[in-house]
Nucleic acid binder design. Structure first.
Lengths: 355, 355
DNA sequence: TTGTAGGCGTTATCAC
DNA sequence: GTGATAACGCCTACAA
C-alpha cells in the first residue's frame, strides 16, 4: 500500500494525499475527509525511507552509552542502575514527543557506530553518556555537525550543534561531605572513579570544599582511593585498599563516588567485619534501588534521573527541529539528600583499629 | 557525500561503488581498493533511507514493552528489573549482529505504534513482551505478516511470521514449590499476578504440581492471593491480604510469583513484624539484583535472562533474513535455583499466630 | 570487469 | 484547490 494506491482509491492525486498526510492547509474539507477515510481503512502509513530520502528529518534519536570492554566476570556499565533508569525515562519522553529511541552500546573499538548512524542518516540526533569520550572523537563529531547532547562528558558546549547537560556533580559532592561533617565526623574518606571523568572531578571537588569549609583538611594521600567508577568491583577494591591502608586508625565515615561503587563499598565494609553505621558511616552519590534494601538502607545524595532524561531529550529535539542553537550548557539544579540509616553521629572517641 | 561523488572521485560509476559497498565479487582488486580508499577518506556511509527504499530490509528491530498506564505514584513495569536486564542484553546482542534496537513502551491506547513502525517500514521485525497483548491485536499482526517474537504471551505460534519464546514458567514454579516442600513446609502460600497472563498461570500450575506431588493439597481459597504482577505494590498488597486472612494460623512459607512482587512481599512481611525465615520462609520466581542485598538475601528460581535475550533476538534476525520459518515455539530449558538464606527448615510446630 | 537506465515512495515546485 | 513532474540516493537488471 502506497500513496498512489490511496490516491487512486480516493480519486485524487498522490500530491493531495501527501498534503493530507502532512496537514497542509490548501485541501478542501470534503477531499481531506475522503482521503483520510481511505488511509484509515487501509491502515496506511507513509514509507519512512521514502520520506527520509526526500529530505525530511526522521524521527529517530540515538542513545549512545560509552562502555569500555567488560571483563568477563563483571557487568558492563550499561547494566548499572543509573543507565537503566535513564533509558526507561528517555524512551518514555522520546516517545511522548513522537520520536523513537535507538540505543547502542559503544565500545572503544566500535566508535564509528556513531558516525555510521549519523552519516547514513539513520538518526537525526544523539545523546552520549557513560565512559569518557575521547577528544578526537568529540572534535570530529563537532566538526561534522552531528546534533548531540553530551551528558557528564565536558563542561562547556564547544559548538552550536552540541548541547551539554551535566548532573550537578559539585553540589552532590558538597552535600555528601556536609552531611558527614554535620554528624561530627572528621576522619572522612572518599572512594571514587577515574579522575579523567568530569563527574569524578566535580564530585570530589564539591566534597573537598565541604570539608575544607568546615575546617577539616582533606588528606588525599590518606583518605582518597580510586577504582572503576562504573563497576561494583571498583568500589569494592578501592574501599578494601583504603581501609587496609588506614587499618590502624580507621576513618569514621566514607563517601562513595557513584551508586555502582557504593554497592561495592557496602560489600567491602561488610566483608571486613565492620558495622554500618556503628564503625563507619556511609553515604553515596547517585540513587539506586538496591540502597533501599540493604541493611541498613544507605543514605545518598542525588539528582533526579527523570529530570536528566527530560532535559537531554527535550533539548535534543529542539536542536533538531530548530536547526541550531547558540552553544549551551545545562546543570540540573535540584539535588536531593536522602537520609536513611547508614550515617551516625560521630562519637568523638575514635573507634580505634580493627583489621 | 553520496555514491555519485564517491564514484567521481574514484573515477568509476556509481554502480561500481555500489558493488564495492555490497561486497560483490565482480570488481577488480585495483578498483575495489581505489573505491574503498575514497570511501574511507570521506567517511562515507550509504544513505539508509535510499537503501531501504529500493527494497533492502533495514537493520532495525523494534522492542515493544506492553505496559498499562502507570498510576501516578508507582513505577511503570518498564522500570522493573527484568526488563532492564533484558533490554541491556538485547541491545548488546542486537548490535553484535549488526542490527540496531529501537525500544518503545506501548500503552493500551497507543497500540498502533506497532502498526506504524511496521507499515512505515521503520523496522524489519519486532519483539513484544510485558503485559498481555489482546487477541485482536495479535490476530492483526499475524495477518499482516509482521515478523514478530512474542515473549511470554501465548503458548503456540499461530503463524509462520510469529515466533514464540517463553520462560520456563512451569518449571520455575515447580522448583520453587519443591524447595519449600523439601524444607518440610506444608502451610505454603503463593502470591501472584493477573491470571490472564500465561506466565502467571504456568508458574502457579508448576507450583501446585510440586505441592500435590508431595501430598500437600494446595488450598487456593486460603493460600493463594493475586496482585499486580509487575508492581511492587501488587506483591505488597497481596501479601498483606493473604497474611491478614490467615492471621490465626500463618503459613510458614511463601512464594512470590515475580521478582517485582517479591520485593513488595518482602516489605509487607517486614512491615507486619514477621521475621524471614524464622516466621516465614520466602522464595521468588525471577532474579533481581535487589534480592541479593536484602537481609536476609532472598532465594529465587530463575531462567537466565541473557539466554532469553539471545534466543529472542537471534531467532528474530533469522526470521527476517530467511523470510519465513515454520511456526515455532521455544522454551528456555535451563532453570536455576539460587538458594540464599530466606528459607529455613520447617519446625513441625507451627509458629502460631501473630498479627 | 564495468557502465547505463529505470524505479523504489515520497515531497516540493510549478503549473493550472 | 488540485494535479503533473522532478528530484532524493541507492540497487538491480541489462548491456557492453
Amino acid at each position: 500500500m502506497n500513496s498512489s494506491e490511496i490516491a487512486k482509491l480516493a480519486c485524487v492525486s498522490r500530491t493531495t494525499v501527501s498534503r493530507v498526510l502532512n496537514g497542509h492547509a490548501s485541501v478542501s474539507e470534503g477531499t481531506r475527509e475522503r482521503v483520510e477515510a481511505v488511509i484509515r481503512e487501509h491502515n496506511y502509513f507513509p514509507d519512512a525511507a521514502a520520506r527520509n530520502l526526500v529530505g525530511k528529518q526522521n524521527k529517530v534519536l540515538g542513545l549512545f552509552i560509552m562502555d569500555v570492554a567488560a571483563t568477563s566476570d563483571e557487568y558492563t556499565i550499561s547494566r548499572s542502575q543509573f543507565f537503566y533508569d535513564y533509558i526507561a525515562f528517555a524512551i518514555d519522553i522520546t516517545n511522548r514527543h513522537g520520536y523513537n529511541l535507538m540505543t547502542t552500546i559503544v565500545h572503544e573499538d566500535s566508535m564509528d557506530d556513531i558516525d555510521r548512524l549519523f552519516q547514513s542518516r539513520s538518526i537525526s540526533g544523539g545523546i552520549i553518556m557513560g565512559d569518557h569520550l575521547d577528544q578526537n572523537a568529540l572534535a570530529r563529531f563537532s566538526a561534522r555537525g552531528y546534533k548531540l547532547v553530551l551528558y557528564n562528558q565536558i563542561r562547556r558546549s564547544p559548538a552550536s550543534n552540541i548541547i551539554v547537560v551535566n548532573y550537578d556533580n559539585f553540589k552532590c559532592g558538597r552535600l555528601a561531605g556536609e552531611e558527614l561533617v554535620r554528624q561530627g565526623h572528621t576522619k572522612i574518606a572518599h572512594v571514587t572513579g577515574e579522575p579523567n571523568k568530569l563527574s569524578v572531578r566535580d564530585r570530589l571537588e564539591g566534597f573537598e570544599t565541604a570539608l575544607t569549609a568546615a575546617g577539616i583538611p582533606f588528606d588525599r594521600a590518606r583518605y582518597l582511593e580510586y577504582g572503576a567508577f562504573n563497576r561494583r568491583s571498583g568500589g569494592y577494591g578501592a574501599t578494601q585498599r583504603l581501609l587496609q591502608r588506614n587499618r590502624d586508625d580507621l576513618p569514621t565515615a566514607l563517601c562513595a563516588g557513584s551508586a555502582t561503587m557504593l554497592m561495592g563499598t557496602f560489600e567491602a565494609i561488610r566483608d571486613l567485619g565492620l558495622r554500618i553505621p556503628e564503625d563507619i558511616s556511609l553515604i553515596g552519590i547517585d540513587e539506586v534501588d538496591t540502597a533501599i534494601y540493604t541493611s541498613p538502607p544507605l543514605s545518598v545524595v542525588s539528582t533526579c534521573c527523570e529530570e536528566i532524561a527530560k532535559l537531554t531529550v527535550v533539548r535534543l529535539i529542539e536542536l533538531i527541529e530548530q536547526g541550531s542553537v547558540t552553544p549551551c550548557d545545562y546543570v540540573i539544579p535540584k539535588v536531593t539528600l536522602t537520609l536513611r540509616s547508614s550515617i551516625s553521629t560521630c562519637k568523638s572517641g575514635s573507634p580505634g583499629s580493627k583489621p
